[in-house]
């Protein structure tokens, strides 16, 4: 992975979200293999598109004060080109930095030693 320079869709997604949403944390998982069989995907696969489904975890200050619907729209807007070129579905977790911090605390309470 390290030295190979392959522009995967995952990398493009990462770059686009980074610049458009000033993400402070960003995780992209290609989960296309989990959906490889389903009907709508077969057509894309036939066209050589195998990167169709991604999980996106993004933390951005731009989500502040926005509803979930608006946050998802911001992500979709940033990835409009990808969605027009074979990207089928995203599973999105969109948090503000404050929310991410609060979640990290409740999920991984670090004991004070």
């Amino acid at each position: 992975m390290g030295s190979r320079v392959v522009v995967t869709r995952a990398n493009r997604i990462k770059a686009k979200l980074q610049s458009a949403l000033e993400a402070t944390a960003l995780e992209i998982d290609d989960v296309s293999y989990q959906h490889a069989g389903h009907a709508a995907v077969r057509a894309s696969t036939a066209e050589g598109q195998t990167e169709t489904h991604f999980n996106v975890k993004i933390v951005s200050p731009k989500f502040d004060g926005q509803s979930l619907l608006k946050r998802h729209r911001l992500v979709y807007d940033a990835l409009a080109d990808e969605l027009h070129s074979g990207l089928h579905a995203l599973s999105i977790v969109a948090n503000t930095p404050q929310e991410a911090e609060a979640k990290a605390k409740t999920q991984n309470p670090i004991p004070n030693k």
Partner: peptide
């Protein structure tokens, strides 16, 4: 841009995640 889409009272609520 994606499915499923859920509408309540004529308005889009979102997709599966939401």
């Amino acid at each position: 841009p994606t499915f499923p889409q859920i509408f309540v009272n004529g308005e889009l609520v979102g997709g599966c995640d939401i």
